[in-house]
Design a protein around this nucleic acid. Structure first.
Length: 287
DNA sequence: CATATGTCCTGAGAGC
DNA sequence: TGCTCTCAGGACATAT
């Protein structure tokens, strides 16, 4: 499930195609339902053919391929999408191909097993709306002040709020849990009860966890879906502190056991000792 | 407006 | 063994 570190790894992996020209785009034959493509392939073709790739950026969990026309191809992997220069894991779920006039890299591929991902061609104005109005500050650089400003009055549990891309862009279910563990904050805490120093720890934890995960090229979970642009696994799954660690001993306190709960229909993993709510002492004698 | 829930999708794994 | 069921969680549409 590509989140910021995985998408950033994909972005870095396809940087070598900057400077290449697009010779054609194609939607390969696919037995499964087609993914969302906007605009339709014939109009898409006309607008991108012959343009040059001038930059490749990341916008939250999306890869943005900027073109000399000032438009941009926005790739959104969602659950199982991959952005590849190498051969895809299977031919059957190949969803989109960008052919290039490059000697070293002939094509960029978008592969997606479950098909929830999207490929969109946006004008610079549309991209600006996405960046400035729909998405919050990027998680890699968000400050404690920005966290407090955007979520400080929310009634939601902090773990659920961290997944809101309009509040902060790039965090998903896995890294929300990792961040709150590093910050030492109970994932069920209502945002409005979080102190300044806790927002600071959350901001610090966000930066630390995401940079660490980028260093290891993201997390390839047991289903093996996520790969980098060269179809290689990530390594951060071996460094998870809580995610998918239910039942193992917490590495932070060395005493408690990692627990799993469900919040907003999603798994949350945490250490009940390191991530306790502050203030009220646990009531005695009711166990 | 803020927040909660349902939906899309496929393959893996559980259980019978 | 082979069937059915449940689950995984990105973002968005719809409901409260």
């Amino acid at each position: 499930m590509p989140e910021l570190p995985e998408v950033e790894t994909m972005r870095r992996g396809v940087l070598p195609i900057v400077g290449s020209k697009i010779t054609s785009v194609e939607r390969p034959e696919c037995k499964c339902r087609p993914i969302l493509l906007k605009p339709r392939i014939d109009r898409f073709q006309k607008r991108v053919d012959g343009t040059k790739i001038v930059a490749i950026d990341r916008l939250g969990k999306r890869v943005v391929i900027r073109l000399s026309s000032t438009e941009a191809i926005v790739l959104e992997p969602r659950m199982t999408g991959l952005v590849l220069l190498a051969d895809p894991p299977s031919i059957e779920h190949l969803r989109f191909r960008i052919s290039l006039s490059s000697k070293s890299h002939r094509e960029l591929l978008f592969w997606d097993r479950r098909g929830l991902g999207t490929v969109q061609l946006l004008s610079s104005a549309e991209l600006e709306i996405l960046e400035n109005e729909k998405l919050g500050p990027d998680a890699l650089s968000i400050t404690a002040q920005q966290f407090a400003d955007r979520l400080g009055k929310s009634q939601r549990a902090v773990k659920v709020a961290l997944l809101d891309q309009s509040a902060v862009a790039g965090i998903g279910n896995l890294y929300a849990a990792e961040i709150l563990h590093v910050a030492g904050v109970d994932p069920t805490t209502c945002c409005h009860r979080i102190s300044r120093s806790q927002w600071q720890r959350i901001a610090d934890g966000t930066s630390l966890v995401l940079q660490e995960a980028i260093k290891y090229e993201g997390s390839t979970l047991s289903d093996g879906t996520y790969r980098n642009a060269l179809n290689e696994s990530g390594g951060y799954q071996n460094h998870h502190r809580v995610y998918d660690c239910e039942g193992s001993k917490c590495s932070r306190c060395g005493e408690a056991t990692i627990k799993r709960i469900v919040q907003a229909q999603r798994s949350t993993f945490f250490c009940p000792k390191c991530q306790r709510k502050r203030g009220i002492h646990p009531s005695l004698g009711n166990q």
